[in-house]
Amino acid sequence: MKEVHHKADEHHGAHEKTYKYGMVVDLDKCTGCGACMVACMAENNLSFRKDNSDRLRSNLWMRVYKISNGRPFPDTDISFIPRPCQHCEGEGHHHTPCVSVCPATATDYSHETGIVSQVYTRCFGCRYCMAACPYHVRVFNWWDPTWPKGMEKYLNPDVSVRMRGVVEKCSFCYHRYQRAKNKAYAEGRRELHEDEYQTACTQACPAGAITFGDLKNPEHKVHKLKKSRYAFRLLEKLGTNPKIYYVSTRDWGRKAGEVYAGEEPKGVTHVTHA
């Protein structure tokens, strides 16, 4: 339709190195402090309301679940599961649950990074992807997001401000990946090192419980950590193939990854010695 002469030679983009970004969360180190939730809100311009106590309608991209072994006093034990988007890859003929159902291709699975994107200007809020996601990761803007006068000064220009009526979710801080690529391009290289692209929750976690990196790359810490004997993933049996690995020495804790079986999970009290 339009004739444009490119000075640059016609090299087709050399097929760049692909990544499979994922996370390993050590549930023994996680203290349930919520710094990851707040860092995520601050980084990604999440809106807040005067009354956020109704968790069913509050838009949290990273949500820390409090789970219990369900045993009576004094054998009660609780643990915390920080749950970002699982960026499912799907296995076999199962594609990513939410990407395959979106009618307007507002969300898509990037094979270059393994990250499930969400484009807020294309989503028209049919919420089918929310029904498809078993992890309740996708949240909907039931209200018009507003900021009290002055607070909009801290908004991050690298993340678009959403509007009412669209679904939003954790993007593994993709704008940080874009920034890291920018820096790499400026230095004339295409590959990213492990420390150049870390998510806001990984960086903020005071306990260092969250490790983020390329699951395929042996030099990245997550590659080794995910092989731990105590590692498990949420709803592995369904075949969603999520990228978030959880490590817990509590055996009742590891049962959290199973599919809901109708009643609270039972487990032995966690006693090592003394």
Binding site: K2, G13, Y174
Partner: peptide, 28 residues
């Protein structure tokens, strides 16, 4: 000047890089 609409970027990317870009390459 080339028009800078989504279709132009996509077309140029298809032409130059021969790849169908993922959304987050250009969206944020």
């Amino acid at each position: 000047a080339a028009r800078m609409k989504m279709d132009d970027c996509a077309e140029c990317h298809m032409e130059k890089r021969g790849v169908h870009e993922a959304c987050f390459v250009c969206h944020k």
